[in-house]
């Protein structure tokens, strides 16, 4: 295994809920090498979303460290963290586009945040829209797009800042199998051409199967298994991994949304 690009050490996070507390993460330690497509799988409530949100500190862990490219994120100042986040892209299950802005304006947004002049913003945004196959939708509003198109806009938006890491939080869970495939292929293409380290959170084994090179299995806030995706898929050791593979086989009947 290469040296870790993203290094998570003893990450813990507890939420207080109405009836007591929920341990979302229990001392998770994880290494994600550079330029991999790393899948994190688990059922709803496994803590995988919390984990990925800790990677760009949208969520502050109670204890543990998050080191990216040798830099401990928790030691950064607010301003340093803000700048660092610009290079950690994130896409979401519900796309989270600006509904009142056009597709082009959405893709321009991260560039606007960085203070890039308007003309350059537009040029780059149009080029990115071309890359995701939506140049003809530049003037449309998100409400006029399908789910798959919205996610492609979100991907174009996230690429605008030339990120070195792309976090995908259930990015295909709101999409049908056909569209899921298109989005996953797009992610793979981005990975192959731009060399971005991708972390994918999912509850669907087929997503892992499709594009992930490495994977981790989470269950109730604990890490169950971690390693080569190919090997775990072939020969799962943990109960959780075995169960998720079983679900995958009966997937057509049940729909789990994380």
């Amino acid at each position: 295994m290469e040296t870790a690009y993203i290094e998570v050490q003893k990450l813990s996070k507890t939420y207080s809920a109405k009836n007591g507390t929920v341990e979302a993460l229990k001392e998770i330690s994880l290494s994600i090498p550079q330029n991999e497509i790393f899948g994190i799988i688990g059922l709803s409530g496994a803590g995988k979303s919390t984990l990925v949100r800790c990677l760009n500190l949208l969520e502050k862990p109670d204890s543990g460290t998050v080191i990216i490219n040798g830099e401990d994120l928790l030691t950064l100042s607010k301003e340093q963290l803000r700048i660092r986040r610009q290079k950690i892209g994130m896409i979401f299950q519900h796309f989270n586009l600006l509904e009142q802005q056009t597709v082009l304006e959405n893709v321009c947004f991260p560039l606007e945040i960085r203070g890039i002049p308007v003309k350059q913003r537009k040029e780059k945004a149009l080029q990115l829209l071309k890359q995701v196959g939506l140049e003809d939708k530049a003037k449309a509003y998100p409400s006029q797009l399908s789910g798959g198109q919205k996610q492609r806009v979100a991907i174009a938006r996230v690429l605008a800042n030339d990120p070195d890491i792309l976090l995908c939080d259930e990015a295909t869970s709101a999409l049908d199998p056909e569209t899921t495939k298109i989005i996953l292929n797009l992610l793979k293409e981005i990975h192959d051409t731009m060399g971005i380290t991708i972390v994918i959170i999912t509850h669907e084994m087929k997503v892992i199967q499709e594009i992930c090179t490495q994977m981790a299995v989470l269950h109730k806030g604990s890490l169950q298994e971690c390693g080569s995706a190919e090997e775990i898929l072939k020969n799962p050791k943990s109960k959780a991994a075995k169960r998720l593979l079983m679900i995958k086989e009966t997937e057509e009947e049940t729909d789990y949304v994380g």
């Binding site: 994130m90 519900h94 989270n96 947004f109 991260p110 945040i113």
Partner: peptide, 27 residues
């Protein structure tokens, strides 16, 4: 305003001022 859109802006490294005007007021 959808919390997710605000989070997306934070994840992009937006300043608070940008979030207020572009995301909160804009949306």
């Amino acid at each position: 305003v959808n919390q997710g859109v605000i989070e997306a802006a934070i994840s992009m490294g937006a300043r608070k001022r940008m979030i207020i005007f572009k995301v909160l007021i804009g949306e």
